[in-house]
Amino acid sequence: MHEISLCEGILQILEEQGREHGFTRVRAIWLEIGTLAAVEIEALRFGFEVVCRDTLAAGAALHIEEVPGQARCLACAGEFSLSHRHAPCPRCGGYRLEVTGGDEMRIKELEVE
């Protein structure tokens, strides 16, 4: 649902960076999206195309790296990968987990001209 606003956020960053670093076209963009970040990748791709139409990023290739969820169990200190936020610890069955990775939404790099 909020993928469109995320794309607007991306575009704002691109425009800001363009002013700062003197580029006028973005050819490609690399994103890192955690699997726990509640982002629909397909919706994000669609939104990106729509939001970037007639901008410096029109037609830019979108490369998305999905980062797997990681957690630490606060009960047994076990570390494991996490597919859903409500999954229990595979070792002790506890639910008190600290998410240590997989909720990122970052722009990594750009190919520009």
Binding site: L6, G9, I10, Q12, I13, Q17, H21, F23, R27, L31, E104, M105, R106, I107, K108, E109, L110, E111, V112, E113
Partner: peptide, 16 residues
Amino acid sequence: SQTRMVRIEQDILARN
């Protein structure tokens, strides 16, 4: 055309 890479490492929600 001369393209170049820019590494930015920025959160998408950084502005918010």
